[in-house]
Computed example of a mutant assay.
Amino acid sequence: MAIRPAEQIIHKAAWLYYAHGLRQDEVAKQLDISRASVAMYLRKARETGIVNISTSTQLFAEDVLARQLEDALKLDAVWIAPQTEQAADPAAEVPVLAASVFLELVRKGDRIGVAWGRTVYAIADIMSYADLQDVTVVQLCGNLGAPYSYRPDQCTMEIARRLNAQGTNFYAPLVLTTEALARDLRAEPVIREQLASISDCDLALYSVGTVDADSHVVKCGALRPDEMDALRQRGAAGVIAGQIIDARGAALDCSYNRRVISADLKSLAAIPKRLMVVQEDKKFEPLIAAIAGGLCSHLVVGAGMARQLLDHAKTMAG
């Protein structure tokens, strides 16, 4: 499996020092650690063979790919779940890695925003239990009807339960029938305060959805397949926290978005750590849109998606 999240900083320090040629004080400044810590991490990198590229395994190659993606996409951190012959479903490895990454990113007193969907619920379901102090987990968007699996409130409360944290749900539907009704509900003091507090989060956890018949907003009944198709023709590229985004990662100007009760995309982009987790390679275009919109600072993907992203970045740069 890939380098454990707790050890990733060793790899990052070695990458900056040996691959980028930065001095130890420059590495320390970029990683916001002491120079003494850099020296210690470089020593560990040599002792564990991380910098011995000539004898590295595929495991190391995948972590080099992670560092290359960080450089190319200007992301704070990237983790890659490797494709192995032993894994019956390579995509299933992504939530396992993401759950570990997520726990590494959470700090005492953090406020965490959580969206919804199969990937987020899979992360919550596999996450280890932790006893963190003064952590609050908040729902990033309105709720769905009872029959739908992986509802926003389920994802939020399951993660809060795993962290022994306080959970805060949105007591509003995801989509209203009219724009006026949605506007009035957003103006209600409780909902207004909840939406306004999203930018105060320290960490966000979400995935990005497709804009086709398999989209979760179609499957949950928020949009019909023909309505989604029409939005795609108008430039829809992905779905974030129930909202339709265009190729720039901005909210698409459409009636559906004006009827949605969800965190403003600018509020999401203001969260310091925005952990995006993507299992399926078919979500390449939605993920590119989310990255373009500044909605991702930390990324967990599979090896196939990672190579697609790096190839795309090279094409755009060249």
Score class of each variant (00 low, 15 high):
75 L>S: 07
72 A>P: 09
205 L>W: 00
135 V>S: 06
58 Q>P: 05
251 A>L: 14
83 Q>Y: 10
228 M>I: 01
63 D>C: 07
167 G>N: 05
172 A>L: 01
79 W>E: 01
74 K>H: 14
84 T>H: 08
188 E>W: 05
7 E>A: 14
53 I>K: 13
216 H>M: 11
257 N>V: 01
316 M>D: 10
15 W>R: 05
192 R>F: 08
132 L>A: 13
29 K>A: 15
310 L>I: 12
266 K>D: 15
69 L>N: 01
159 I>S: 11
3 I>L: 14
292 A>N: 15
271 I>D: 04
214 D>R: 08
298 H>V: 09
134 D>M: 02
11 H>G: 14
315 T>F: 11
221 G>T: 00
267 S>G: 12
119 T>V: 09
196 A>I: 00
31 L>S: 07
31 L>I: 02
114 V>P: 03
275 L>K: 03
157 M>V: 00
123 I>S: 01
261 I>S: 00
118 R>F: 07
183 R>T: 12
262 S>A: 15
18 Y>C: 12
88 A>T: 06
22 L>K: 06
291 I>E: 05
282 K>D: 14
149 S>C: 08
180 A>F: 03
239 V>I: 15
142 G>K: 03
298 H>A: 09
237 A>Y: 02
221 G>L: 09
224 R>D: 14
258 R>K: 13
283 K>F: 05
169 N>D: 12
117 G>V: 00
2 A>I: 02
104 E>C: 09
59 L>R: 13
79 W>Y: 13
41 Y>T: 04
53 I>A: 15
125 D>C: 01
87 A>T: 11
310 L>N: 07
218 V>T: 07
241 A>T: 02
94 V>H: 02
253 D>V: 06
